[in-house]
């Protein structure tokens, strides 16, 4: 049972990391367009080079 003293703090840390990732995603506007990325992933091959 004493392993729980390690596992529970680890689970808390994981939750904290997930929350941080989620908040970052909200802040960078990833929830503003819920449709586009689903299509975009099929098309975005290599980006064209910038013209000089």
């Amino acid at each position: 049972m004493s392993i729980l003293y390690l596992l529970i703090p680890i689970s808390l840390a994981i939750v904290a990391i997930i929350a941080a990732i989620f908040l970052w995603a909200v802040r960078t506007g990833q929830f503003e367009d819920m449709e586009g990325p689903a299509h975009r992933i099929l098309m975005d091959d290599d980006d064209p080079p910038q013209k000089p």
């Binding site: 819920m34 299509h39 975009r40």
Partner: peptide, 26 residues
């Protein structure tokens, strides 16, 4: 359709002087 978004974004990003172009599909 989604290809229009793709086309516009790529076309805009190719322009010299355009820093970023993002299109919201919704």
């Amino acid at each position: 359709c989604a290809a229009c978004v793709w086309l516009n974004e790529r076309h805009l990003r190719q322009l010299p002087g355009v820093v970023s172009a993002d299109i919201n599909f919704s």
